[in-house]
Design a protein around this nucleic acid. Structure first.
Lengths: 342, 342
DNA sequence: TTGAAAGCGATACCAT
DNA sequence: ATGGTATCGCTTTCAA
């Protein structure tokens, strides 16, 4: 087993001191251009790579980013966002010699412990905050811990963390107008968790557009789980024909899929008897019957932008917010004109 | 900002040398019981925690486990296994002061680079190998890198890595017998990737049982993606009525869901016109209509057992294989007796 | 059983 | 611009 070359080996190879090697390899000023190149060549020749543990000890950086995901065990399997999101993070991280430390926890207690120990042990340089809540305590927690972070979406509390945003307003507007244009006059929204900022924002936008269009809107709150999506659907379908919605907009695609199953189980044809949409495009929607009308989404792009935003911050750049391309309507087979009742 | 207590602070607090503190806190022999307790008390009192970077530098351990997931971007979103699996890993890791380093990569090239750099930089103490392939090159790769690992399932190449296994034989046997008992005489299997060990093993077992029962079995290979599950379904449904299967066993649940959608889109009723099953229970199967008959699965348990197996190995214990509770049949609404054709 | 001192592999400061 | 040396926090000899 070869011993791994260290900075001393590079120094010997290049005929300089190891301090100079450190300066050269980190692109610090004050190194003669020629010797710098000689050092870089020497490092490349013997295949030197910095030892992260040693580097961490002096630089107090972990060369790692943390992602703590809190998921109720009941809905953990059905969230289609994360795998692709993490793949997106990875492209940026590996380019910059960083790794992702991932923690999946069941509740808020374990979540806070996870943030605290990861930060206290210096295992990450910053956190990626997904699924923002109302008055999310993690914003203050990160401030208390003195650690950096980036949020997916804009918190509703004062923050110094940069945010990566995506506009859903126009997409939801287009979606509801499209349904109205088909002739739907009673549209329900099976909303996501009201404590989650994006669930709430979507519900508000839905209501705003519905009001503007003079549509009879009904909102059923859920926790984003397919179970509650199914329950909400049963509730809505049990309404009297005169008030029962002819279209349902679900807060996410897994709920929409579950809702479609309930409707079909009750003997309804989609979209003839009921139109159904998601709000947060995932691949599963393409493979149910009929395929799901929804808004598009690009988790890989989310990952890329989030990672580079946070790494820039860690590298000492000023925090800067970024915006992704706005959500756009994708029409598939699950929506159509309502069939007049007879 | 408080400076974090170091081992020197503990030593001063306990009135001993820092070397002795290290021995005591790591439960090494040769420390007086009374002083050991005094040291432990001192450490607890000032809230000392070991600095992983410093520890890694001398112990050459990362206090981290690595999971590299290779996923075709096309099927990345639909795999329901990982979130719960990682939650299971986490319970064990956090108890033992370890973290999970996760990498999601699109292809074999990126995968190998990921293993190499994680190992070379000493960022992990061992790897978790999921989705074993035939003649999986990762087994040799880990040997070459001199790094530990654990496999989910048994490789088909010589290995020194411990394996965590789960028996599917009896479950598949029960499933096919159950279908045969309902009166199905032509059963198809939409198999998973033949290059994946578990996909192949399930296909073989399906054929074995079908042969034993004298059933007309037909196998369509896929890559485990919902698209190909849907395609395979179209192929099967296009067969002449006399040879067309009355039941389809899919290699995983997402394919079964996609297949159901195709069948329903073709105007078939499930289970009256076609029975459908998965083979690897996931939650999504409970929320489609009709709910999916499948085999059960417990990704959290997989995670717990895999993590403790690998950590024991890293801690110097002998590698020891572990077995989970065997797969069991779960009957739901997607299967029933075939309707005689008229 | 305990203390003193030498590393681990890098960074950073102070000379020169 | 470069070399020498202390330092990060911990583990591990080697003496005593």
């Amino acid at each position: 087993m070869e011993r791994r070359p260290t900075i001393v080996d590079v120094a010997r190879q290049a005929g300089v001191s190891k301090g100079l090697v450190s300066l050269a390899l980190n692109d610090r000023p004050g190194v003669n251009q020629a010797t710098k190149e000689r050092i870089q060549a020497a490092a490349a020749e013997i295949g030197w790579r910095p030892n992260p543990a040693a580097r961490s000890l002096t630089s107090r950086r972990a060369y790692a980013l943390g992602l703590v995901v809190k998921r109720d065990p009941r809905i953990i399997e059905t969230d289609p966002f994360f795998a692709a999101f993490i793949a997106g993070l990875e492209t940026v991280l590996s380019d910059r010699g960083q790794v992702l430390v991932l923690s999946v926890v069941p509740d808020a207690g374990a979540e806070e412990r996870s943030y605290r120990s990861l930060a206290a042990d210096g295992r990450v340089d910053g956190f990626i905050l997904t699924d923002l809540l109302r008055h999310d305590r993690r914003i203050a927690l990160l401030a208390e811990l003195g650690v950096r972070g980036v949020t997916l979406g804009e918190p509703d509390v004062p923050t110094t963390l940069p945010a990566v945003r995506r506009e859903y307003e126009d997409g939801i507007d287009d979606l509801v107008r499209y349904l109205a244009g088909l002739g739907h006059e009673r549209i329900a929204h099976v909303a996501g968790n009201e404590d989650m900022l994006h669930g709430r924002a979507r519900r508000e936008q839905f209501e705003r557009v519905a009001a503007a269009l003079g549509i009879e809107a009904r909102v059923v709150p859920t926790d984003f789980s397919p179970e509650q999506g199914a329950d909400a659907t049963r509730t809505l379908l049990a309404l009297d024909p005169g008030v029962r919605p002819t279209a349902i907009v679900y807060g996410n695609d897994p709920m929409a899929v579950a809702g479609m199953a309930v409707a079909q189980g009750a003997g309804l044809r989609i979209p003839d008897d009921l139109s159904v949409t998601g709000l947060d495009g995932s691949q599963i929607g393409q493979f149910v019957y009929p395929a799901l009308t929804t808004l598009d989404n690009d988790p890989v792009e989310w990952g890329r932008v989030v990672a580079s935003t946070l790494l820039d911050l860690v590298d000492g750049h000023e925090p800067v917010d970024r915006s992704l391309t706005p959500a756009r309507l994708i029409v598939r087979g699950s929506t159509g004109a309502p069939t007049p009742r007879h």
